[in-house]
Design a protein around this nucleic acid. Structure first.
Lengths: 319, 319
DNA sequence: CCTTGATATGAAACGGGTTTCATCAGCTAT
DNA sequence: ATAGCTGATGAAACCCGTTTCATATCAAGG
C-alpha cells in the first residue's frame, strides 16, 4: 500500500503538501497540486482512515443504541437518522441492545475510546447519571422525554399522547378502558400509569390493575393480550394499544376470540405504521422519521436543545 | 487524556510492558503487572482505538450493505448478522443503499481505507467484476445465489423456491398463476422469469406477461397489485407473492376489491414473517436469521464457501 | 561447567496521517 | 526604503498504540 510518504517522494514535494492537497487546503501552487494529483492517480492512493482518525481525533461515526432491529418503531427512527447521516457524511454504527445495559455500555465505551464521535440513544436502561459521566467524551442525544441540559433530545409528550387517546375514548363513550405496555418498568410505563390514574381520577372511574396489559410489543403478543382480556369481568370496552403491531395483531385475531371491533372493544393504536392504514386502525401518528433526522442533527450540533414533536390522532374505523 | 506513555511513566515501566499488560501478553512479571494495573485504575486510562486500529491494521468493524432498514426481510437477516457479530466481538457499520450503486461503493471504499475489516453484501447493484476488484482489500461475502470462488456466500436456491411454489399451486389445480417481483431488473427477477417460463412450458401453459406484477415490496404495494389484477381477463386464480408484506396487504385489501381468498384467488407468500402466521398465509419459510449468522461467520473466516440453506413450504389457509 | 530454552524487559521502529511553526519570496502601504 | 502582509513550502512534532529485536536473567539438561 502506498502511503503519503511514497506519494510525496513520487511527486517531489513534502508530505505536508500532499496532505494539503488531500484536504483541499489553500496555499498549494497549481504546479505542485497537479504533480500530487498525478501521483495519486498513478498509484491509486487512498488514505488510511485509521491514521486520519487518529490524527484528527474524530471519526465521523455515530453510534446508535436501540433495543431492536425488527420493530417498525425503531426502524422508522433509524431511517430518519440514516438518511440525515448520509447527507452529512456520517456513518452509523449499530448497537442493538435488547435492553441489555452491558451492550449499551459498549457504545459508550467506544465513545470514550474515540471510535465514535457521538451517540444517539433511542432507548436506554443505563441510569441517567451514568450517561452523564460520558458526555465529556462526546455528544450524547436521546430519543426521550426528559429535559436535561446535559443532553439534547427529541421527544413527543408521551403523557399528552396517552392522555389524548384516553380522553378520545372517553369522549366516544367508553368507561372501561384498558391499555398495553411493553415493559412494566420501562421508561414510559411509569408515566403511563400515572397518566392513566390521573385520567381515571378526573372522571371518577375506578382503577383496575388488570386493565394494564404488559409484554405487548410485537404482532404476535396480541394473542396474549386477547387471552387475558377475554377472561376479565367486566372486560374493557376500549383498549389503548401502544404499538400498532400489537394493535394489528389484535384486530386480526379478535374474530377468533369472538370479539368484534369496535363494537365489543374499540382499539386505538400508536405510531401510524403502514399496517395501521391497511387495517383501518385508528391510531396516533408520531413523526418518527423526522425525529430520527433531528437526532442526527443534534448529535452533530454543539448546541443543546430539547425538541418536542407534535402528534396527530388519525381517526379510522376501530373506535 | 492519559496515554500509554503517561501510564508507563506512572507505573515506572516501558510502554512495551504497558502494552503487554493491556493485551494480556505473557512474559510480564506479577509485580509490574500490578503496578500497571494500578496506574490504569488511577487514571481511568482507556486505549485510543484509532491508534490501536492503525497499529494493528484492523478494526473489528464489518460493513453491511443492504437496501432497506424497514423491511422485515432485511431486518431478519440483519438480526442474524448482528447477534453473531455481538458474540464474536465485532461491530457493524450500516450502509442502507436503497439500491443506489454509489452508496454501495462507499462501503467498499471504507474497506480499501481500512475502516472496515470486511463487508457483507445483502443486495447489490454494483457489477460483480467491480466487486471483485475489492476482495484484495478484505473479505466480501454475499447474500446471493452465485457460485464464485472470489466470495463466500449464503443463499437459498431461488429457482427451486419459485418452482416449488409454482408446482404446489399447479398441483392444487391452478392453471392461471401470476407472480409478483420488486424490481424488473433485480437479481432475482430474471431467474424468476426463466423459471416461470420453464414451468409454463413444462405444463403446456400459455405465457401472459401481465401475470408478472412488479413494484411489490411493501405492504401498501398490494393495492397496486390488486388494482392491476382485477383488470385482467382471465384473472389469475393463484398468485405467488414474493414478499409476505405484500401478500399480507393483498389478503387484507382483497375483500375491498371483491376478491375472496383462496376461492377466487389463492395466495402464497414468501419469507414466513410473523404477519403471515397471523393471517394464516401459506408461505415459504426462509431461514433468514440463520443465513445472517452464517454471513457473519463467513466474513470472518479465511475459507471461501457457498452455503445453501433449505426452505420449507408452510401450508396454511390461503391456497 | 556449558549450552539451551523460557521468562522478562525496554529501545526503537512502525503504522500513516495532520498540524504547528519557521522560513522565504514577493507585494503593498507608508 | 521598510514594516507588514499574503502565499507557498517543508521539517518536525504530534496523534497513540503494537511489534520487532536486542539483551539479560535464571534454571534445567548434558
Amino acid at each position: 500500500m502506498t502511503n503519503i510518504k511514497d506519494l510525496a517522494k513520487r511527486a517531489g514535494v513534502s508530505v505536508t503538501t500532499v496532505s494539503r492537497v488531500l484536504n483541499h487546503h489553500p496555499y498549494v501552487s497549481e504546479a505542485k497540486r497537479i504533480k500530487v494529483e498525478r501521483a495519486i492517480d498513478e498509484t491509486g492512493y487512498l488514505q488510511n482512515m485509521n491514521a486520519v482518525h487518529l490524527s484528527k481525533g474524530k471519526t465521523n461515526v455515530i453510534g446508535v443504541i436501540l433495543p431492536f432491529l425488527d420493530h417498525p418503531y425503531f426502524a422508522q427512527v433509524l431511517i430518519g437518522i440514516s438518511e440525515k447521516a448520509q447527507a452529512k457524511g456520517q456513518t452509523l454504527m449499530l448497537f442493538p441492545t435488547n435492553y441489555d445495559a452491558e451492550k449499551e455500555q459498549e457504545a459508550l465505551l467506544m465513545l470514550r475510546q474515540k471510535q465514535l464521535d457521538g451517540v444517539i440513544v433511542c432507548s436506554r436502561v443505563t441510569p441517567l447519571h451514568v450517561l452523564e459521566d460520558y458526555v465529556q467524551y462526546g455528544p450524547i442525544v436521546l430519543l426521550e422525554q426528559r429535559k436535561s441540559d446535559q443532553f439534547s433530545s427529541v421527544f413527543v409528550d408521551h403523557q399528552d399522547v396517552f392522555n389524548q387517546a384516553l380522553e378520545y375514548l372517553y369522549q366516544k363513550g367508553h368507561r372501561n378502558i384498558g391499555y398495553t405496555i411493553y415493559r412494566r418498568n420501562g421508561t414510559h410505563s411509569k408515566v403511563r400509569e400515572e397518566t392513566y390514574r390521573a385520567f381515571l381520577a378526573r372522571h371518577d372511574l375506578p382503577f383496575n390493575k388488570d386493565y394494564c396489559f404488559d409484554g405487548a410489543l410485537y404482532l404476535e403478543d396480541s394473542i396474549d393480550v386477547l387471552t387475558k382480556l377475554m377472561k376479565l369481568e367486566p372486560s374493557p370496552t376500549a383498549l389503548l394499544i401502544t404499538s400498532d403491531q400489537v394493535a394489528a395483531g389484535f384486530l386480526i385475531h379478535a374474530k377468533a376470540f369472538g370479539l368484534t371491533i369496535p363494537e365489543e372493544c374499540a382499539v386505538i393504536g400508536l405510531n401510524d405504521e403502514p399496517i395501521a392504514k391497511a387495517l383501518k386502525l385508528t391510531t396516533i401518528h408520531i413523526p418518527l422519521k423526522a425525529m430520527g433526522e433531528a437526532l442526527l442533527d443534534q448529535v452533530l450540533s454543539p448546541h443543546r436543545e430539547n425538541r418536542p414533536f407534535d402528534i396527530t390522532l388519525i381517526e379510522r374505523q376501530t373506535v
